[in-house]
């Protein structure tokens, strides 16, 4: 099952599957190294809900929801549901 990057919860990891963005919008993300296959972690949302800080390839980058929604990811909770639940329990 595929989700988009904006659906990642704070703290959750995901793996980029595809970028469904116009070339102009995708360019800055590609430049920072956000390709299909990249591991992304959603760090936190801005207090007003948008943008969100993501961590990939050793850097933290703020991305708006409209851009994040155009990036398909395999979310941690789908890839490894058991591990994800354990992590949630450990956090709470």
């Amino acid at each position: 099952m595929s989700r988009n990057m904006a659906e990642l919860r704070a703290g959750e990891r995901g793996w980029v599957c595809a970028l469904r963005l116009s070339p102009l919008r995708a360019a800055p993300l590609l430049r920072l190294g956000l390709f299909p296959g990249t591991e992304v972690q959603c760090l936190l949302r801005s207090p007003l809900g948008d943008p969100t800080a993501y961590r990939f390839r050793g850097t933290t980058v703020a991305v708006r929801r409209e851009d994040a929604a155009g990036i398909d990811v395999m979310a941690e909770r789908d890839a490894n549901p058991m591990g994800w639940e354990e992590k949630q329990c450990a956090q709470s």
Binding site: P28, L29, L32, T60, V61, D67
Partner: peptide, 8 residues
């Protein structure tokens, strides 16, 4: 778009 690196 707004894509900004948050440096350490």
């Amino acid at each position: 778009s707004f894509i900004l690196e948050l440096p350490p």
